[in-house]
């Protein structure tokens, strides 16, 4: 692990109206970023139950991203 690059697996909860839209905009502008995140669209970050975060960590996520 020491000489291996850290390649985290991240689950992102994105708000449909802002962060998901921003991620689309990043695409339209062809901004490049590392492909480590898997996204889960919600209608508002208010939908995120702390239990979802714990569940994702239990499922093997190295990090959780919440954008709203």
């Amino acid at each position: 692990m020491a000489d291996q690059e850290f390649n985290p697996s991240i689950l992102g909860f994105l708000c449909n109206w802002c962060c998901y839209a921003a991620a689309d905009a990043a695409g339209v502008s062809r901004f490049q970023y590392p492909p480590n995140m898997r996204t889960l669209r919600v209608m508002c970050t208010g939908r995120i139950d702390p239990a979802f975060v714990l569940r994702a960590l239990a499922e093997g996520a190295d990090g959780i991203f919440s954008g709203g």
Binding site: A23, D24, A26, G27, V28, R30, F31, Q32, Y33, P34, P35, T39
Partner: peptide, 17 residues
């Protein structure tokens, strides 16, 4: 969404995309 949030933003890493 495999375009705006995938192919467009990971153009240099086709396998990972």
């Amino acid at each position: 969404n495999i375009r705006d949030q995938c192919s467009w933003v990971h153009a240099g890493e086709p396998e990972l995309a």
